[in-house]
Simulated scan of single mutants.
Amino acid sequence: MTASIGAPSSDILIIDDPAPHVRRLTLNRPEKRNALSNALRAEVFAALEAADVDPDVQVSILRGAGPCFSAGYDLAGGTAPPYPFHTAGGVGHWSRHVVEGCFRIWDLAKPVIAQVHGWCLAGGSELATACDLVYVAEDAQIGYPPVRMMSPPDNQFHAWLCGLRPAMEMMLTGDAIDGLEAVRVGFANRAFPAADLDAQVLAMAERVAKIPTEVQQMNKRSVHRAMELMGLRAAIRAGAEIQALALTTPSSRETFAAIRKNVTKGLSERDQAFGDYRTKS
Protein backbone atom coordinates (compact mmCIF):
# COMPACT_ATOMS: atom_id res chain seq x y z
CA MET A 1 0.00 0.00 0.00
CA THR A 2 1.28 3.45 -0.84
CA ALA A 3 1.11 5.73 2.15
CA SER A 4 -0.91 8.89 1.76
CA ILE A 5 0.00 12.14 3.44
CA GLY A 6 -2.38 12.74 6.31
CA ALA A 7 -1.11 16.04 7.69
CA PRO A 8 1.72 18.49 6.96
CA SER A 9 5.15 16.94 7.53
CA SER A 10 8.35 18.79 8.35
CA ASP A 11 12.07 18.14 8.09
CA ILE A 12 12.10 16.61 11.57
CA LEU A 13 8.71 14.85 11.71
CA ILE A 14 7.22 12.89 8.82
CA ILE A 15 3.47 12.32 8.97
CA ASP A 16 1.52 9.91 6.78
CA ASP A 17 -1.61 7.74 6.77
CA PRO A 18 -0.40 4.24 5.82
CA ALA A 19 -3.86 2.62 6.17
CA PRO A 20 -7.44 3.78 6.65
CA HIS A 21 -7.90 5.57 10.00
CA VAL A 22 -4.20 5.14 10.90
CA ARG A 23 -1.95 8.18 11.41
CA ARG A 24 1.80 7.54 11.53
CA LEU A 25 4.45 9.91 12.92
CA THR A 26 8.11 9.27 12.13
CA LEU A 27 10.81 11.04 14.14
CA ASN A 28 13.16 12.24 11.41
CA ARG A 29 16.52 13.19 12.88
CA PRO A 30 18.40 9.99 11.99
CA GLU A 31 21.76 11.76 11.91
CA LYS A 32 21.14 12.62 15.60
CA ARG A 33 19.67 9.20 16.40
CA ASN A 34 16.31 10.99 16.68
CA ALA A 35 17.40 12.99 19.71
CA LEU A 36 14.38 14.67 21.25
CA SER A 37 14.87 18.40 20.90
CA ASN A 38 12.13 20.70 22.15
CA ALA A 39 11.37 21.55 18.54
CA LEU A 40 10.80 17.88 17.69
CA ARG A 41 8.81 17.28 20.87
CA ALA A 42 6.59 20.26 20.04
CA GLU A 43 5.82 18.83 16.62
CA VAL A 44 5.08 15.39 18.06
CA PHE A 45 2.62 16.77 20.61
CA ALA A 46 0.95 18.97 18.01
CA ALA A 47 0.60 16.10 15.54
CA LEU A 48 -0.78 13.69 18.14
CA GLU A 49 -3.27 16.28 19.37
CA ALA A 50 -4.31 17.05 15.78
CA ALA A 51 -4.90 13.33 15.19
CA ASP A 52 -6.94 13.16 18.38
CA VAL A 53 -9.51 15.59 16.95
CA ASP A 54 -9.37 14.35 13.35
CA PRO A 55 -12.52 12.27 12.65
CA ASP A 56 -10.66 10.26 10.02
CA VAL A 57 -8.03 9.02 12.51
CA GLN A 58 -8.67 6.23 15.04
CA VAL A 59 -5.12 5.34 16.10
CA SER A 60 -1.61 6.81 15.80
CA ILE A 61 1.79 5.11 15.41
CA LEU A 62 5.00 6.73 16.63
CA ARG A 63 8.30 5.44 15.24
CA GLY A 64 11.81 6.61 14.36
CA ALA A 65 13.61 7.00 11.03
CA GLY A 66 17.04 5.51 10.44
CA PRO A 67 18.84 3.11 12.77
CA CYS A 68 16.83 3.67 15.97
CA PHE A 69 13.68 4.91 17.68
CA SER A 70 15.38 7.57 19.82
CA ALA A 71 18.59 7.81 21.83
CA GLY A 72 17.01 10.27 24.27
CA TYR A 73 16.82 14.01 24.85
CA ASP A 74 18.98 16.29 22.75
CA LEU A 75 21.72 17.23 25.21
CA ALA A 76 23.58 19.31 22.62
CA GLY A 77 21.42 22.37 23.24
CA GLY A 78 18.10 20.97 22.06
CA THR A 79 16.41 21.13 25.46
CA ALA A 80 16.70 24.91 25.82
CA PRO A 81 13.57 27.12 25.61
CA PRO A 82 11.12 27.53 24.03
CA TYR A 83 9.30 24.51 25.44
CA PRO A 84 6.45 22.73 23.70
CA PHE A 85 3.94 23.77 26.37
CA HIS A 86 3.82 25.68 29.64
CA THR A 87 4.74 23.99 32.90
CA ALA A 88 5.08 25.83 36.22
CA GLY A 89 8.65 27.02 36.63
CA GLY A 90 11.05 26.81 39.54
CA VAL A 91 13.24 24.00 40.84
CA GLY A 92 12.51 20.73 39.08
CA HIS A 93 10.89 22.39 36.08
CA TRP A 94 12.41 20.05 33.48
CA SER A 95 11.39 16.79 35.14
CA ARG A 96 7.86 18.08 35.80
CA HIS A 97 7.66 19.26 32.20
CA VAL A 98 8.66 15.81 30.91
CA VAL A 99 6.10 14.09 33.11
CA GLU A 100 3.38 16.50 31.97
CA GLY A 101 4.29 15.65 28.38
CA CYS A 102 3.94 11.94 29.03
CA PHE A 103 0.54 12.47 30.60
CA ARG A 104 -0.54 14.60 27.62
CA ILE A 105 -0.11 11.48 25.48
CA TRP A 106 -1.58 9.23 28.18
CA ASP A 107 -4.74 11.37 28.32
CA LEU A 108 -5.47 11.45 24.58
CA ALA A 109 -8.79 9.88 23.59
CA LYS A 110 -7.31 7.80 20.78
CA PRO A 111 -4.72 5.04 21.22
CA VAL A 112 -1.08 5.71 20.42
CA ILE A 113 1.28 2.88 19.50
CA ALA A 114 5.06 3.07 19.95
CA GLN A 115 7.06 1.18 17.31
CA VAL A 116 10.55 0.70 18.71
CA HIS A 117 13.68 -0.45 16.90
CA GLY A 118 17.37 0.04 17.59
CA TRP A 119 18.26 2.31 20.50
CA CYS A 120 15.45 3.42 22.79
CA LEU A 121 17.28 5.22 25.56
CA ALA A 122 16.57 7.69 28.36
CA GLY A 123 13.99 10.21 27.09
CA GLY A 124 13.28 7.92 24.15
CA SER A 125 12.19 5.18 26.53
CA GLU A 126 10.03 7.70 28.41
CA LEU A 127 8.33 8.70 25.17
CA ALA A 128 7.66 5.07 24.26
CA THR A 129 6.16 4.24 27.63
CA ALA A 130 3.78 7.20 27.42
CA CYS A 131 2.10 5.37 24.53
CA ASP A 132 -0.74 2.90 25.02
CA LEU A 133 0.84 -0.04 23.22
CA VAL A 134 4.55 -0.74 22.67
CA TYR A 135 5.85 -3.13 19.99
CA VAL A 136 9.58 -3.65 19.64
CA ALA A 137 12.13 -5.25 17.38
CA GLU A 138 13.68 -8.32 18.96
CA ASP A 139 17.12 -6.71 18.79
CA ALA A 140 16.03 -3.30 20.08
CA GLN A 141 18.12 -1.92 22.95
CA ILE A 142 16.13 -0.20 25.71
CA GLY A 143 17.79 1.44 28.69
CA TYR A 144 18.28 4.45 30.92
CA PRO A 145 22.06 5.06 31.13
CA PRO A 146 21.76 8.46 32.91
CA VAL A 147 21.28 6.55 36.21
CA ARG A 148 25.03 5.90 36.16
CA MET A 149 26.17 9.46 36.81
CA MET A 150 23.25 11.87 36.46
CA SER A 151 19.89 10.91 37.94
CA PRO A 152 16.99 8.45 37.91
CA PRO A 153 14.41 8.99 35.14
CA ASP A 154 12.26 12.08 34.81
CA ASN A 155 9.33 9.73 34.18
CA GLN A 156 9.92 6.81 36.54
CA PHE A 157 7.81 4.15 34.89
CA HIS A 158 10.16 1.20 35.49
CA ALA A 159 8.68 -0.17 38.72
CA TRP A 160 5.13 0.14 37.40
CA LEU A 161 5.75 -1.59 34.10
CA CYS A 162 8.53 -4.02 34.94
CA GLY A 163 8.12 -4.86 38.64
CA LEU A 164 10.50 -4.51 41.57
CA ARG A 165 13.45 -6.75 40.62
CA PRO A 166 13.80 -5.91 36.90
CA ALA A 167 13.26 -2.22 37.66
CA MET A 168 15.88 -2.25 40.41
CA GLU A 169 18.44 -3.94 38.18
CA MET A 170 17.90 -1.37 35.43
CA MET A 171 18.14 1.48 37.94
CA LEU A 172 21.30 0.17 39.61
CA THR A 173 23.22 -0.65 36.41
CA GLY A 174 21.89 1.51 33.58
CA ASP A 175 22.20 -1.57 31.37
CA ALA A 176 20.01 -1.94 28.29
CA ILE A 177 17.62 -4.83 27.68
CA ASP A 178 16.77 -6.22 24.27
CA GLY A 179 13.30 -6.47 22.78
CA LEU A 180 12.64 -10.01 23.94
CA GLU A 181 13.57 -9.15 27.51
CA ALA A 182 11.46 -5.98 27.27
CA VAL A 183 8.42 -8.14 26.57
CA ARG A 184 9.30 -10.60 29.34
CA VAL A 185 9.51 -7.90 32.02
CA GLY A 186 6.48 -5.94 30.80
CA PHE A 187 7.99 -2.89 29.08
CA ALA A 188 6.55 -3.94 25.71
CA ASN A 189 3.57 -5.90 24.43
CA ARG A 190 5.29 -8.02 21.79
CA ALA A 191 8.60 -8.33 19.96
CA PHE A 192 9.08 -9.11 16.28
CA PRO A 193 12.06 -9.62 13.98
CA ALA A 194 13.22 -6.16 12.90
CA ALA A 195 12.33 -6.83 9.26
CA ASP A 196 8.73 -7.62 10.23
CA LEU A 197 8.18 -4.77 12.68
CA ASP A 198 6.60 -2.26 10.27
CA ALA A 199 4.06 -4.75 8.93
CA GLN A 200 3.21 -6.21 12.32
CA VAL A 201 2.66 -2.83 13.94
CA LEU A 202 0.51 -1.64 11.05
CA ALA A 203 -1.58 -4.82 11.26
CA MET A 204 -2.14 -4.22 14.98
CA ALA A 205 -3.03 -0.57 14.35
CA GLU A 206 -5.63 -1.66 11.81
CA ARG A 207 -7.16 -4.01 14.39
CA VAL A 208 -7.27 -1.24 17.00
CA ALA A 209 -8.86 1.10 14.44
CA LYS A 210 -11.84 -1.22 13.99
CA ILE A 211 -13.26 -0.03 17.34
CA PRO A 212 -15.07 3.35 17.35
CA THR A 213 -13.25 6.13 19.16
CA GLU A 214 -16.15 6.80 21.53
CA VAL A 215 -15.78 3.22 22.78
CA GLN A 216 -12.00 3.07 22.57
CA GLN A 217 -11.45 6.13 24.74
CA MET A 218 -13.49 4.47 27.50
CA ASN A 219 -11.46 1.28 27.08
CA LYS A 220 -8.26 3.31 27.53
CA ARG A 221 -9.59 5.12 30.57
CA SER A 222 -10.69 1.92 32.26
CA VAL A 223 -7.09 0.71 32.32
CA HIS A 224 -5.61 4.10 33.15
CA ARG A 225 -7.99 4.77 36.03
CA ALA A 226 -7.18 1.40 37.56
CA MET A 227 -3.48 2.22 37.45
CA GLU A 228 -4.13 5.67 38.89
CA LEU A 229 -6.14 4.23 41.77
CA MET A 230 -3.09 2.11 42.58
CA GLY A 231 -1.04 5.33 42.68
CA LEU A 232 0.75 5.44 39.33
CA ARG A 233 0.18 9.11 38.55
CA ALA A 234 1.11 10.28 42.05
CA ALA A 235 4.18 8.02 42.15
CA ILE A 236 5.49 9.27 38.80
CA ARG A 237 5.00 12.86 39.92
CA ALA A 238 6.89 12.09 43.13
CA GLY A 239 9.64 10.50 41.05
CA ALA A 240 10.01 13.73 39.09
CA GLU A 241 10.83 15.53 42.34
CA ILE A 242 13.45 12.89 43.23
CA GLN A 243 14.99 13.31 39.78
CA ALA A 244 15.22 17.05 40.33
CA LEU A 245 16.93 16.47 43.67
CA ALA A 246 19.41 14.06 42.07
CA LEU A 247 20.55 16.79 39.70
CA THR A 248 22.02 18.67 42.68
CA THR A 249 24.54 15.90 43.51
CA PRO A 250 28.25 16.44 42.74
CA SER A 251 28.33 13.49 40.31
CA SER A 252 25.42 14.86 38.32
CA ARG A 253 26.82 18.38 38.21
CA GLU A 254 30.23 17.12 37.08
CA THR A 255 28.70 14.93 34.36
CA PHE A 256 26.58 17.74 32.95
CA ALA A 257 29.59 20.07 33.02
CA ALA A 258 31.53 17.53 30.95
CA ILE A 259 28.62 17.14 28.54
CA ARG A 260 28.37 20.88 28.04
CA LYS A 261 32.01 20.90 26.92
CA ASN A 262 31.69 17.86 24.64
CA VAL A 263 28.56 15.69 24.53
CA THR A 264 30.16 12.63 22.94
CA LYS A 265 33.20 12.68 25.24
CA GLY A 266 31.07 13.26 28.34
CA LEU A 267 28.71 10.36 27.60
CA SER A 268 31.59 8.09 26.67
CA GLU A 269 33.28 8.78 29.99
CA ARG A 270 30.03 7.89 31.75
CA ASP A 271 29.83 4.50 30.02
CA GLN A 272 33.53 3.61 29.68
CA ALA A 273 33.67 1.38 32.75
CA PHE A 274 30.66 -0.60 31.52
CA GLY A 275 31.90 -1.07 27.95
CA ASP A 276 28.51 -0.46 26.33
CA TYR A 277 26.52 2.16 24.40
CA ARG A 278 29.05 4.47 22.67
CA THR A 279 32.02 2.65 24.23
CA LYS A 280 31.11 -0.86 23.08
CA SER A 281 33.97 -2.31 21.07
Score class of each variant (00 low, 15 high):
residue 141 Q to G: 00
residue 118 G to C: 07
residue 84 P to G: 15
residue 106 W to E: 15
residue 203 A to Q: 01
residue 222 S to R: 13
residue 96 R to Q: 06
residue 33 R to D: 09
residue 58 Q to I: 03
residue 72 G to R: 01
residue 1 M to K: 06
residue 150 M to V: 08
residue 180 L to S: 06
residue 266 G to H: 09
residue 250 P to Y: 06
residue 260 R to S: 02
residue 155 N to R: 03
residue 138 E to V: 15
residue 218 M to R: 14
residue 199 A to Y: 11
residue 150 M to G: 02
residue 209 A to M: 08
residue 127 L to K: 06
residue 243 Q to D: 04
residue 273 A to Q: 07
residue 32 K to A: 03
residue 251 S to D: 11
residue 167 A to G: 04
residue 35 A to I: 01
residue 252 S to L: 12
residue 178 D to F: 10
residue 124 G to H: 05
residue 126 E to S: 11
residue 142 I to Y: 02
residue 231 G to C: 14
residue 205 A to H: 11
residue 234 A to I: 08
residue 128 A to S: 09
residue 172 L to K: 14
residue 235 A to Y: 14
residue 215 V to E: 08
residue 66 G to Y: 02
residue 18 P to W: 02
residue 132 D to S: 06
residue 164 L to A: 09
residue 255 T to N: 08
residue 1 M to R: 05
residue 143 G to T: 06
residue 140 A to H: 12
residue 139 D to L: 07
residue 207 R to A: 03
residue 111 P to M: 11
residue 72 G to Q: 02
residue 201 V to W: 03
residue 50 A to V: 11
residue 140 A to E: 04
residue 217 Q to V: 06
residue 265 K to F: 09
residue 76 A to Y: 13
residue 27 L to W: 01
residue 278 R to G: 03
residue 98 V to S: 03
residue 155 N to C: 06
residue 44 V to Y: 00
residue 191 A to L: 12
residue 188 A to F: 13
residue 162 C to K: 05
residue 67 P to T: 04
residue 211 I to G: 00
residue 212 P to F: 10
residue 39 A to S: 11
residue 250 P to G: 09
residue 227 M to W: 15
residue 249 T to A: 06
residue 133 L to D: 13
residue 190 R to P: 02
residue 2 T to A: 10
residue 161 L to A: 11
residue 15 I to F: 07
residue 146 P to H: 03
residue 181 E to S: 11
residue 96 R to D: 11
residue 104 R to L: 02
residue 28 N to K: 08
residue 275 G to A: 04
residue 125 S to W: 09
residue 81 P to R: 10
residue 94 W to G: 02
residue 145 P to L: 01
residue 6 G to S: 07
residue 109 A to K: 12
residue 134 V to L: 05
residue 257 A to Q: 15
residue 238 A to P: 05
residue 163 G to I: 05
residue 149 M to K: 13
residue 276 D to A: 12
residue 48 L to Q: 14
residue 220 K to W: 12
residue 23 R to L: 12
residue 181 E to C: 07
residue 154 D to R: 00
residue 15 I to K: 10
residue 173 T to A: 11
residue 126 E to N: 05
residue 160 W to L: 04
residue 162 C to N: 11
residue 133 L to E: 12
residue 38 N to Q: 13
residue 43 E to P: 08
residue 1 M to D: 00
residue 198 D to F: 02
residue 277 Y to T: 04
residue 116 V to M: 08
residue 145 P to W: 00
residue 196 D to W: 09
residue 236 I to R: 00
residue 21 H to P: 05
residue 125 S to F: 06
residue 277 Y to V: 00
residue 219 N to W: 14
residue 135 Y to S: 05
residue 117 H to F: 02
